[in-house]
Amino acid sequence: MEVRTIKVFTTVDNINLHTQVVDMSMTYGQQFGPTYLDGADVTKIKPHNSHEGKTFYVLPNDDTLRVEAFEYYHTTDPSFLGRYMSALNHTKKWKYPQVNGLTSIKWADNNCYLATALLTLQQIELKFNPPALQDAYYRARAGEAANFCALILAYCNKTVGELGDVRETMSYLFQHANLDSCKRVLNVVCKTCGQQQTTLKGVEAVMYMGTLSYEQFKKGVQIPCTCGKQATKYLVQQESPFVMMSAPPAQYELKHGTFTCASEYTGNYQCGHYKHITSKETLYCIDGALLTKSSEYKGPITDVFYKENSYTTTIK
């Protein structure tokens, strides 16, 4: 009895394709271990004539594949690729409408935090270190965002349907971005203890939790000093293409032309909904596939993004 075979390709990165001759009487799992086709788990399936010449994702289970996976995804987590594939199996079914010149995501599976993050990423200057993220990001900007969303979920250790947080998501993504040249110098002034300067680099240099107003941050924000008295913390120097200011959701007025974009969060910790506000020729609110415009805006804002380049204080 002759062994019926077909020729397929296996890959971990969709760049390096490895030619395989597979036995049609055995499952993919018996031949390769966990195997995925377009995100779908085909591990328990036997090869079919229609699979001839198709590319299958496999887990990096030998040295060659491990090197290829690390170079593309910059992670050695053995569960990463499987999590990416199972997320992709959902995100490829989502709709990605162009809204006001940006790629958004039609609401499904509690994905409003991903839509808000995706919209924000198209408006701030950011370059990702893992080629996987950078490639998928370019495709997302062009309207094909399924891979990018699935990668975000995998890097953030999230599953489809789980509630997510924009600030946490951005923080994970910033860790995989090139923020080497970003720098922030802060000064804390206390009447009792004097003053202390701190220099922050990388992710810490672009994120701040405690106030939404970048102007206020430049002037000074009140913080408790270690001595128990009130101290003032203010920005001395900022070198970065953008800054992200966050605070627990509270009524906040966004003035046209003073910011790049913002995240609105309605609801409580267990259950809520994100919308995205962007400042173009007027203010726009993007909620999944829905767009509304207004000249002014007041609502429960939790993150505001500002364009920056270089700032030095005039406070002496």
Rank of each mutant, 00 (worst) to 15 (best):
residue 55 T to R: 11
residue 305 F to N: 13
residue 142 A to W: 00
residue 76 T to H: 06
residue 135 D to H: 10
residue 236 V to H: 05
residue 226 T to K: 14
residue 140 A to F: 09
residue 51 H to L: 03
residue 271 C to G: 15
residue 85 M to T: 04
residue 67 V to N: 13
residue 105 I to V: 06
residue 32 F to D: 06
residue 122 Q to S: 01
residue 232 T to F: 05
residue 272 G to P: 06
residue 159 T to E: 14
residue 83 R to V: 05
residue 234 Y to Q: 07
residue 151 L to M: 05
residue 11 T to V: 05
residue 7 K to V: 14
residue 175 Q to D: 06
residue 186 L to F: 13
residue 125 E to Y: 00
residue 263 S to N: 15
residue 23 D to K: 12
residue 191 K to G: 11
residue 178 N to T: 06
residue 93 K to P: 11
residue 129 N to E: 07
residue 220 G to L: 03
residue 244 M to N: 01
residue 227 C to F: 01
residue 61 N to H: 12
residue 270 Q to L: 15
residue 49 N to V: 13
residue 22 V to F: 02
residue 37 L to M: 11
residue 316 K to N: 15
residue 202 G to E: 10
residue 248 P to N: 15
residue 157 N to K: 13
residue 74 H to G: 11
residue 258 T to W: 00
residue 222 Q to F: 09
residue 265 Y to V: 00
residue 90 H to N: 06
residue 92 K to H: 03
residue 137 Y to G: 04
residue 152 I to K: 00
residue 93 K to I: 13
residue 78 P to R: 11
residue 33 G to Q: 10
residue 79 S to Q: 08
residue 293 K to D: 00
residue 308 E to P: 11
residue 156 C to I: 09
residue 282 T to Q: 10
residue 222 Q to L: 11
residue 316 K to I: 15
residue 76 T to Y: 11
residue 254 L to G: 01
residue 315 I to S: 15
residue 13 D to E: 15
residue 270 Q to M: 14
residue 238 Q to F: 02
residue 8 V to A: 12
residue 103 T to C: 06
residue 104 S to I: 08
residue 126 L to H: 05
residue 162 E to I: 06
residue 272 G to E: 04
residue 103 T to R: 05
residue 255 K to N: 09
residue 253 E to V: 09
residue 93 K to R: 13
residue 87 A to V: 06
residue 147 N to P: 11
residue 303 D to R: 00
residue 25 S to V: 09
residue 7 K to E: 14
residue 134 Q to G: 04
residue 149 C to R: 06
residue 106 K to G: 15
residue 210 G to E: 04
residue 115 A to F: 02
residue 114 L to D: 02
residue 249 P to Q: 00
residue 73 Y to D: 04
residue 209 M to E: 13
residue 280 K to H: 08
residue 14 N to P: 06
residue 208 Y to G: 09
residue 29 G to K: 08
residue 78 P to A: 12
residue 268 N to C: 07
residue 226 T to Y: 09
residue 233 K to Q: 14
residue 249 P to R: 08
residue 60 P to R: 02
residue 148 F to H: 04
residue 54 K to I: 13
residue 153 L to C: 08
residue 257 G to E: 08
residue 5 T to F: 09
residue 229 K to P: 06
residue 137 Y to S: 04
residue 219 K to T: 11
residue 189 V to T: 10
residue 213 S to M: 08
residue 276 H to F: 15
residue 145 A to E: 02
residue 316 K to Y: 15
residue 97 P to T: 10
residue 286 I to R: 05
residue 134 Q to T: 10
residue 281 E to G: 01
residue 95 K to W: 07
residue 173 L to K: 10
residue 272 G to V: 00
residue 204 E to W: 06
residue 243 V to W: 00
residue 202 G to T: 01
residue 171 S to Y: 15
residue 204 E to K: 12
residue 233 K to S: 12
residue 6 I to Q: 11
residue 211 T to K: 01
residue 192 T to A: 14
residue 277 I to L: 04
residue 150 A to I: 05
residue 5 T to P: 11
residue 102 L to Q: 06
residue 303 D to I: 00
residue 293 K to V: 07
residue 15 I to H: 15
residue 234 Y to F: 05
residue 182 C to N: 08
residue 15 I to K: 09
residue 263 S to E: 04
residue 250 A to V: 13
residue 111 N to D: 10
residue 209 M to V: 15
residue 273 H to C: 00
residue 178 N to S: 10
residue 3 V to E: 14
residue 102 L to T: 15
residue 293 K to Y: 12
residue 136 A to I: 03
residue 236 V to W: 09
residue 128 F to S: 04
residue 102 L to W: 15
residue 93 K to W: 10
residue 45 I to H: 12
residue 67 V to Y: 15
residue 162 E to R: 05
residue 163 L to H: 03
residue 129 N to F: 02
residue 237 Q to S: 13
residue 168 E to F: 14
residue 159 T to A: 13
residue 83 R to W: 06
residue 5 T to Q: 12
residue 141 R to A: 09
residue 77 D to G: 01
residue 178 N to V: 06
residue 180 D to A: 06
residue 183 K to Y: 11
residue 282 T to I: 08
residue 284 Y to P: 05
residue 112 C to E: 05
residue 297 Y to I: 06
residue 265 Y to N: 07
residue 44 K to I: 10
residue 46 K to R: 12
residue 87 A to Y: 02
residue 221 V to Q: 03
residue 105 I to K: 10
residue 217 F to W: 07
residue 39 G to P: 03
residue 154 A to G: 03
residue 171 S to R: 15
residue 270 Q to G: 07
residue 24 M to C: 10
residue 248 P to S: 12
residue 129 N to R: 14
residue 40 A to D: 14
residue 150 A to E: 11
residue 308 E to R: 05
residue 276 H to M: 11
residue 19 T to Q: 10
residue 187 N to F: 04
residue 190 C to V: 02
residue 100 N to K: 13
residue 36 Y to E: 04
residue 74 H to V: 02
residue 235 L to N: 00
residue 54 K to N: 12
residue 64 T to A: 12
residue 22 V to N: 06
residue 62 D to K: 07
residue 143 G to F: 04
residue 183 K to M: 09
residue 274 Y to R: 00
residue 33 G to T: 02
residue 66 R to W: 05
residue 144 E to W: 05
residue 268 N to F: 02
residue 134 Q to I: 05
residue 235 L to T: 02
residue 314 T to V: 13
residue 126 L to S: 00
residue 156 C to Q: 08
residue 72 Y to M: 10
residue 66 R to N: 06
residue 188 V to T: 15
residue 240 S to Y: 04
residue 80 F to R: 04
residue 15 I to C: 10
residue 293 K to S: 12
residue 84 Y to E: 01
residue 240 S to D: 01
residue 81 L to S: 01
residue 229 K to D: 15
residue 44 K to S: 11
residue 217 F to G: 03
residue 311 Y to E: 12
residue 181 S to V: 07
residue 300 P to M: 10
residue 136 A to R: 01
residue 292 T to V: 09
residue 50 S to M: 12
residue 4 R to S: 13
residue 280 K to Y: 10
residue 22 V to E: 01
residue 80 F to D: 06
residue 45 I to M: 13
residue 254 L to W: 08
residue 37 L to E: 10
residue 32 F to I: 11
residue 73 Y to F: 12
residue 266 T to N: 11
residue 200 L to K: 08
residue 261 C to N: 01
residue 272 G to Y: 06
residue 249 P to A: 09
residue 52 E to R: 11
residue 216 Q to G: 06
residue 168 E to W: 15
residue 3 V to C: 14
residue 308 E to H: 02
residue 85 M to P: 00
residue 212 L to S: 03
residue 87 A to G: 14
residue 97 P to I: 11
residue 182 C to S: 05
residue 55 T to I: 13
residue 29 G to M: 11
residue 184 R to Q: 03
residue 10 T to R: 08
residue 108 A to G: 05
residue 47 P to T: 03
residue 294 S to W: 15
residue 58 V to I: 11
residue 5 T to V: 14
residue 109 D to L: 05
residue 123 Q to P: 02
residue 273 H to N: 06
residue 199 T to E: 15
residue 173 L to R: 02
residue 186 L to D: 01
residue 281 E to S: 04
residue 100 N to V: 09
residue 96 Y to A: 02
residue 186 L to S: 09
residue 165 D to P: 02
residue 11 T to Y: 04
residue 90 H to G: 13
residue 302 T to S: 14
residue 139 R to Q: 11
residue 75 T to Q: 07
residue 304 V to F: 00
residue 141 R to N: 10
residue 163 L to Q: 10
residue 211 T to S: 06
residue 282 T to F: 04
residue 57 Y to L: 08
residue 63 D to H: 14
residue 286 I to S: 00
residue 79 S to G: 14
residue 185 V to T: 04
residue 8 V to D: 08
residue 265 Y to M: 05
residue 252 Y to H: 11
residue 195 Q to S: 15
residue 284 Y to K: 01
residue 158 K to P: 10
residue 269 Y to K: 15
residue 300 P to N: 10
residue 245 M to E: 02
residue 179 L to I: 05
residue 67 V to H: 13
residue 89 N to G: 12
residue 159 T to H: 12
residue 183 K to F: 10
residue 19 T to L: 11
residue 65 L to R: 12
residue 81 L to I: 15
residue 124 I to W: 11
residue 65 L to I: 07
residue 300 P to S: 09
residue 25 S to E: 13
residue 296 E to F: 14
residue 181 S to N: 15
residue 121 L to G: 02
residue 15 I to Y: 15
residue 119 L to F: 01
residue 61 N to D: 13
residue 187 N to L: 11
residue 207 M to H: 05
residue 27 T to K: 10
residue 47 P to C: 06
residue 278 T to H: 07
residue 315 I to L: 15
residue 54 K to M: 09
residue 132 A to Y: 08
residue 108 A to Y: 06
residue 292 T to M: 07
residue 280 K to L: 14
residue 136 A to M: 05
residue 160 V to R: 00
residue 19 T to R: 11
residue 315 I to Y: 15
residue 151 L to N: 01
residue 217 F to P: 02
residue 31 Q to G: 11
residue 141 R to W: 06
residue 298 K to N: 13
residue 235 L to R: 01
residue 173 L to D: 03
residue 43 T to V: 00
residue 75 T to D: 08
residue 110 N to K: 01
residue 22 V to P: 09
residue 217 F to L: 15
residue 311 Y to S: 07
residue 242 F to I: 05
residue 158 K to L: 04
residue 217 F to Y: 03
residue 147 N to T: 10
residue 274 Y to M: 02
residue 172 Y to T: 10
residue 177 A to C: 15
residue 51 H to I: 02
residue 213 S to R: 00
residue 105 I to T: 06
residue 196 Q to E: 13
residue 111 N to V: 01
residue 30 Q to F: 06
residue 141 R to M: 13
residue 293 K to H: 15
residue 140 A to M: 12
residue 160 V to E: 03
residue 205 A to W: 00
residue 303 D to W: 00
residue 154 A to C: 03
residue 32 F to N: 08
residue 247 A to T: 03
residue 38 D to Q: 11
